[in-house]
Simulated assay, not measured.
Amino acid sequence: MAAHSGSKTVIYAALAGNFLIAATKFVAAFFTGSSAMLSEGVHSLVDTGNGGLLLFGMHRAARPADRTHPFGHGRELYFWSFIVALLVFALGAGVSFYEGVIHILEPEPIRNVSVTYIVLGLSMLFEGFSWFVALKEFRITKGRLGYIEAVRLSKDPSVFTVLFEDSAALLGLGIAFAGIVASQIFEMPELDGVASIGIAVILGLTAIFLARESKGLLMGEAALPEMQEAILGIAQADPAIRGANGVITVHLGPNQIVAALSLEFEDHASAPDIEACVIRLETTVRTELPEVVALFVKPQTPATWQERRAALAD
């Protein structure tokens, strides 16, 4: 629950910042005629909508299990994260690219350029604050892992989605600033359109990366090795179990894991002994590892387990 609380703080900060930035950029684009500024306004508007979709996904994912979804609705967050990536690509990158091409084919000088610089400065300030909040939360969740590795292993897309969107926004602002300055220095308004295309490329690459990560989560990723080792350790400590062969896990949500244990029980263990052991395992795992929402146990010899794992690897 603490992770979700932190995620919501990041998203609320991004929502407030992006809404104010989008309104400011659209007003500036209207008064200046800047293509890059209009592209940045669309970008911030898309980011605002994306924050709302992530909050909606978190709300839907928190619903309890029911008859049609016996393991809960955790993957709804992954679905809406994938939709966010598509929107960044289709709306953010698509509109920016279109605006860039139009302003290259039909260039118009930027009016009231001083207004543009003021808006860019304010946008960088607001966006920087949102980015700092997201980075601070991500540093807490990533631990000792590197940034890229932490994103690849993360099971909660809400924080790194906002972080990457804000990073793309800051890069886009830098490109917009460079394009506007260059168009003024060289008296080539086409460069403003080129900046819009540059923004589109940044957004497109960001969207592809986010879509790739969300796709992996939607398909079902295994729990981190530390979690798997903790489950095996609990099983191995039970006196009725001779050996814990292995465990298969899958994330249904950031804090929802289904685990299947392969165990070899002691030869003298009777059916009631095995049943009591399974109950003990479920109780201990539920207490020590509340993320595990379902635990399945399969009695197997080590040889049988290895054969099944080898078949899966092939």
Score class of each variant (00 low, 15 high):
97 F>W: 15
223 A>T: 07
5 S>M: 08
311 A>E: 15
192 D>G: 05
235 A>G: 08
298 K>F: 10
152 R>V: 14
139 R>L: 11
160 F>I: 01
39 S>H: 12
106 E>W: 06
26 F>T: 01
265 F>G: 09
58 M>K: 03
40 E>R: 11
222 A>E: 02
96 S>M: 05
175 I>T: 15
263 L>P: 05
237 A>H: 05
91 L>T: 11
116 T>Q: 07
22 A>Y: 02
236 Q>C: 08
271 A>L: 15
55 L>D: 03
277 C>P: 02
115 V>A: 11
300 Q>N: 04
299 P>W: 08
228 Q>E: 15
74 G>T: 09
83 I>Y: 02
204 G>Y: 09
223 A>H: 03
205 L>H: 04
156 D>G: 01
273 D>M: 03
116 T>W: 00
2 A>H: 11
188 M>T: 09
311 A>H: 12
89 F>T: 01
306 Q>G: 02
200 A>T: 07
118 I>R: 00
136 K>G: 05
97 F>L: 15
154 S>F: 00
261 L>I: 07
99 E>K: 13
83 I>G: 04
109 P>H: 07
196 S>E: 07
21 I>H: 00
158 S>G: 06
72 G>M: 08
263 L>E: 14
46 V>P: 00
268 H>R: 14
78 Y>W: 08
127 E>C: 13
279 I>G: 10
246 G>R: 08
211 A>D: 05
271 A>H: 09
1 M>N: 05
293 V>E: 14
167 S>M: 14
268 H>M: 02
290 P>T: 08
278 V>M: 09
39 S>R: 06
308 R>I: 12
227 M>Q: 10
190 E>V: 09
294 A>R: 15
86 L>H: 04
244 A>T: 06
204 G>M: 08
132 F>H: 11
44 S>G: 11
122 L>A: 13
237 A>Q: 12
149 E>K: 11
307 E>T: 12
140 I>K: 08
83 I>F: 05
298 K>L: 03
185 I>M: 10
197 I>S: 09
108 E>W: 00
101 V>G: 04
22 A>M: 14
134 A>Y: 01
283 T>M: 04
90 A>M: 14
26 F>K: 02
266 E>G: 12
132 F>R: 13
99 E>G: 09
122 L>G: 08
293 V>N: 10
290 P>Q: 02
185 I>G: 01
291 E>R: 13
